[in-house]
Design a protein around this nucleic acid. Structure first.
Lengths: 187, 187
DNA sequence: CTCATTTTTTATCATTTGTAAAATTTTACG
DNA sequence: CGTAAAATTTTACAAATGATAAAAAATGAG
């Protein structure tokens, strides 16, 4: 998934605006296991995943709780950093070797104030992330773990192949033992 | 909380833009128990709460699951309707007699395309809702019900007075009986 | 104020889920 | 290819939560 496609999927931009945005974007590569974002830092970049898989996790009583997975086309971002310029909740670990587009957000604010299509790009970006986040929240609230696992299996079968089950169990809000029980049951 | 304050808290608008927005806003009142939004409909309005409390719930196997509360200053919105023009998940029930500002969203899109400060107002609106939604998601993922109850008690003590415990238990993801046990324990 | 209705708490028992540890399978790498 | 390490599954037991029913308390209409 190349950067033009990713940017355009969010909101169509004029050539001028797209060039301005792309001025702040570079391509980077990191190895599996690399910690891209840290919860105790205010992040100045957001990343679009060209290739690879990542997870977000928080530490709670020395236990890592995974609450997000991202793959090709998804955005890696500390919302709190991006929106409120505050420390976020998430550590981001790359679960495969990754190729990423890195967008420096330092002069984004200025672009928002000057170019209406970039402002609307930023609006659309937040809106789309909002719908995704809301879906996750409601799925978590309304469905029990078994159903959420089946949902994940249906919507993202590749993730279950690419990500170890301990992380998936954490993401589903259950223990790995419970997930094993679920998997044994639905076979 | 009046409408100027609510609009300005999201993003400062020029007088012209504010007047344009306010053209689409009227004040409405509904009684306790009124169902303001329905899950099976695409909603054409969003509401800002001037006075009162509301909840969002979804039906799951004939059981209502509450996943949101709103009070003075909060926004009542079907995100799926607003952002994707699709049916949302939520029924919204007013839990008290309410005074609301009703914003018709039909010509909002046009305003976004024409006025940069309205585009940025829309961006900021989505961004702020996003941070709130993310906080709820992460709280739900990382904290157990007891802790979430204590968090609610700390951050919104008034809600626990104003909303019946069955709804709060549902919101916390536990049964009313469990919530009673928690309350008995922490006294 | 009183009585009926709704809401909340308590008690009991059944079920689910978690913890810990062992057994098995898969993966990584020399 | 073989071995060590990591990941996953299984088992047994303990703890937490849920379901149900019933009692107690609070609320509201007349």
């Amino acid at each position: 998934m190349n950067i033009d496609e990713i940017l355009n999927n969010i909101y169509p931009l004029s050539d001028t605006s797209k060039q301005l945005l792309k001025k702040s974007i570079t391509e980077v590569k990191y190895k599996k296991g690399y910690i891209l974002l840290r919860a105790d830092k205010i992040e100045k970049n957001i990343y679009f995943i060209k290739k690879g898989v990542a997870r977000a996790y928080s530490n709670k009583d020395n236990i890592e709780i995974t609450f997000w997975f991202g793959k090709e086309g998804d955005t890696i971002i500390s919302m709190k950093s991006y929106i409120a310029n505050q420390k976020g909740y998430e550590n981001i670990e790359l679960l495969e070797d990754c190729e990423l587009y890195e967008l420096k957000t330092t002069n984004l604010q200025k672009l928002f104030d000057e170019y209406i299509d970039i402002a609307n790009w930023g609006r659309r970006f937040a809106e789309k992330e909002l719908v995704k986040t809301e879906e996750r929240l409601i799925s978590r609230q309304v469905r029990i773990a078994t159903e959420r696992y089946k949902e994940l299996l249906k919507d993202n079968p590749d993730l279950i192949q690419r990500i170890q089950l301990g992380h998936i169990a954490s993401y589903l809000g259950i223990t790995q033992v419970s997930l094993s029980r679920i998997r044994a049951e639905i076979k």
